[in-house]
Nucleic acid binder design. Sequence first.
DNA 1: CTTGGCACTCAGGACGGATGAGTGCCAGGT
DNA 2: ACCTGGCACTCATCCGTCCTGAGTGCCAAG
Lengths: 343, 343
Amino acid sequence: MSDERRLAVLRAIVEDYVATREPVGSKVLVERHSLGVSPATIRNDMAVLEEEGYIAQPHTSAGRVPTDKGYRAFVDRLATVKPLSPAERRAISTLLDDATDLDDVLTRTVRALAQLTRQVAVVQYPSLSRATVRHVELVPLGGPRLLLVLITDSGRVEQRTVEVAGEVPEELVGQMRTRLGAVASGRRLAEVVALLPSLPESFAPADRDVVRAVLRALEDSLSAEREERVVLAGTANLARSGLDFPQSISPVLEAIEEQVVLLRLLGEMADDAGAAAGGVSVRIGRELAHDRLTETSVVTSGYASGGQVVAHLGVLGPTRMDYPTTMAAVRAVARYVSRIIGG
Amino acid sequence: MSDERRLAVLRAIVEDYVATREPVGSKVLVERHSLGVSPATIRNDMAVLEEEGYIAQPHTSAGRVPTDKGYRAFVDRLATVKPLSPAERRAISTLLDDATDLDDVLTRTVRALAQLTRQVAVVQYPSLSRATVRHVELVPLGGPRLLLVLITDSGRVEQRTVEVAGEVPEELVGQMRTRLGAVASGRRLAEVVALLPSLPESFAPADRDVVRAVLRALEDSLSAEREERVVLAGTANLARSGLDFPQSISPVLEAIEEQVVLLRLLGEMADDAGAAAGGVSVRIGRELAHDRLTETSVVTSGYASGGQVVAHLGVLGPTRMDYPTTMAAVRAVARYVSRIIGG
DNA sequence: CTTGGCACTCAGGACGGATGAGTGCCAGGT
DNA sequence: ACCTGGCACTCATCCGTCCTGAGTGCCAAG
């Protein structure tokens, strides 16, 4: 009982099924792959693979289809690395090279990823919590409103309006700007938050209410909820591969509208085994632990700035996706982005 | 030949078809609407309506379906205004009232619109070209990079990194910041662009290259292409109403990914007849003049700041949509946003 | 352990008749 | 001049039946 051949059969099934979208039977298997044995033998192997949960039959008289477990085995042990074509590499560079600011880089990145993989792409903004403050700006908007702008070293710009009691004198605005700048510049955001409470005391008692309002806004901007942002592209690809989602594509559309869901996934997958080595992390169907995404797989990778992983990006597609190609694309794009923003 | 009754029949057909998604025949028409005549009479009217192009038959033994022209007549002459329910009004307020900055307002707006109409919602950012500059900020990002931040009176914050030849001394940065601020503050963007060319001459000759790089970036930020942005929501609603798009929803998904297409539409519709009166503009199917959106309708309205229309928002859905409700929602939301940002 | 043979299952397509919704037209009534 | 009931006609859809063929599992022989 050649254990080896059984795995070869599994690989062949996954590859054929991904290519044709149709359950694959023993006959076409020996025809398309040179396995050197007869269909009957393959059938025995397939029976075992089914017993072990790697493949399944949609109905009695049909061929076999890989299960989540089957795809998992394929990804972990069977997939052969598939380098990007020169054309694809070129596409990445031409798309990303003349980006201007961070927004632009990420928008182009997510488009590149969607285009390469022909699937839905997600890119997360660099995390704020690990960033350091480059600059704090406070601008009167007229009337009782101020605009607070926060610039981090990763190039992120956060903005927030502050409602205060009444018109704020230019002088006080200047004072706050200076002292906030002095306290925050060069520090990590978490440190800044810790230093804020003591700040009002250095102002005249009459001004402290205004100062406190500004600080509350600042603290709020740094809160976990606001700090996470994602960009999306390739939603249209879902419709194209609509047939790959037996139910319907709505669960996927819903999930990607709920950015919370995406962020949870990206976060969880950051801790996955493969991800540590700067590699690619894959979750297949049920592994996503999301009851409406059982037909979906996600492929992610972290990207870095200054050697430090600052955020993640990835791709969403049907479980029945071309994993080698997708993984190669995700890895390549993640590296390229790291190079651009990483300095 | 009562012209009046024929229009009543058309209205009834549109209403029934929108409600049931099924071609409507003469019999159910007299049953559901009290038209006071027999099915046979209705049939004669329907024959005329078909002749004139307001309705059509999918196949011989089926009922009638409104054509684009039929919907147009309905919208222009037949639709009865349908005020929002108190619950819906409340939904708008609770969703929008505690918004913080402009980004937040627009994100909440687009969500509210998507939720109310159960369709795809689009909100355009306030146009830059009519805005005036509130503040210009220039921040060294370390190395040969500067970050240029532009804040307008409508609360928009534009950012852009600038690559220069080498490290820029803090003093020069300060100088540029001050002079840029002096030139730009309070002026309209178009005026600012006109004033830029003369600016380098007030700097030391050695610094002029750097100054010019910054100005180029600034000018670029103000260019038409960059100035337009939109936010989207409700894409998942497309899947739900997937049956309403006979072909597939992909053309719609593609169109909304191509923001250019959306911007063109919003722009064109701003000039439509109804739009002038601060009202709602509707385009139905072929009227969109987009060969892949023949099954789609768009409902838009402008929203204002300081009495001036600064941008547009709207909704995309199947031609077979509930126009009165959708129009009411779009108008209500547009007014509410105007009130919030309009000051 | 492999292989050819064989009986078995069953989804999907093809065919055909019945059903019924809906129409257009006409002749008669108001 | 218009409305109406009656009627014959069309045709999409539904449903039951049959057939085909892909694919399987099992077995006995190599």
